[in-house]
Design a protein around this nucleic acid. Structure first.
Lengths: 186, 186
DNA sequence: TACGCTTGCCAACAAGTGTTGACCAACGTG
DNA sequence: CACGTTGGTCAACACTTGTTGGCAAGCGTA
């Protein structure tokens, strides 16, 4: 356990500003100078605390990959629950949008997305889908639908996608994800 | 009709190099210098022929938004046909990947995606889906699934998504899109 | 041949980038 | 109090970016 430092407030301000900038501007356009300005400090502080820009991104998007345990829950509602869980998180955690935006243009971001997919989503499907060796493929299908909605709604902001309510999204995507998880291979 | 110019070969080389760079690097990292180097000419030529970087992007991604006519075709296969059509185009036209990558970080790219959605996909759903005023919402759902697969497969390159065959994609996503188009609202 | 237009290269500009090191003030402990 | 450590600013570096203007060579026409 690391003891509290006098600079913890500054460090936190930097991380929050970085998350906002990465989420709204992407990796290249989120400049260290702009982030520092938002945080109300000098750009050189960012370097001192996080080494370089990539280190800052890693720190700003660090999170545990733990997902809720679906193993014990009724497999027939896994789709709906998964969609609801992701929509809720996406609404309240800028890191997800930041990672999606950065994952498209930055190599480290792409790698992090692969990691989250492999360690977060793929194992989870293993417990739900019928044939174990089909799990990665089914996880990819699920990812395509969930990331696609995030892309349309939070990044591209297509008006009809923005206007959907959370419950509408759950009602429409839930059965899709459920089918990708448990329906027999076509 | 514009008459042939002596520089048409160079212009075409620039556009092709630009498409490749935009598709693989995104807007910011696709520098004019790199594009010019790929095309084997001086960066200043790019400026002369296309004005500025944004003009180059517009020219490189210009295309007609016409989609095949689905109005006359059996509405019960519209989902499968739409998915097959998009997968085929995506495989052979770098402009689509370029537009997706750029649309995530660049404002002009986002605007172009809105345009393609509004003028390309949305009108097409109007002829297929039951209630006309639901057409935009259903088009957004379709877009989320199709763009999501493009994102996972061509941009993020999640291994299981890359390994899917075209026919597998059609077989899995076809029914999803069909449901988004024609199933009654949940 | 002489002229104007096109094609192309070269060198440079101004602005912005990530990054670094010197320097100052405040704090906490001996 | 003196002193090392920490938090912070300032100015500058080296580099890359989009963009511009000048100049030479080639082409077609008169």
């Amino acid at each position: 356990m690391t003891t509290a430092r006098r600079s913890d407030a500054t460090r936190a301000a930097i991380l929050e500003a970085a998350r906002e900038r990465f989420a709204s501007d992407g990796y290249e356009r989120a400049t260290i100078r702009a982030i520092a300005r938002d945080a109300g400090i000098d750009p050189s502080m960012v370097m001192r605390y996080y080494g370089n820009k990539e280190g800052l991104f890693v720190a700003a998007c660090a999170m545990d990959l733990s997902l809720p345990e679906f193993g014990e829950l009724p497999a027939r509602h896994a789709g709906t629950m998964l969609v609801r869980h992701f929509v809720d998180r996406w609404e309240q955690d800028e890191r997800l949008t930041a990672m999606l935006r950065v994952g498209v243009t930055n190599e480290a971001g792409t790698a992090r997305m692969h990691e989250i997919f492999a360690q977060g989503l793929a194992p989870l499907t293993r417990g739900v889908c019928p044939v174990p060796e089909e799990a990665p493929r089914r996880a990819a299908l699920v990812a395509s639908q969930i990331l696609g909605m995030a892309l349309a709604r939070y990044v591209l902001r297509l008006p009809p996608a923005v206007e959907l309510t959370r419950e509408e999204i759950v009602a429409w995507l839930g059965p899709t994800v459920q089918r990708y998880l448990t329906a027999e291979s076509p």
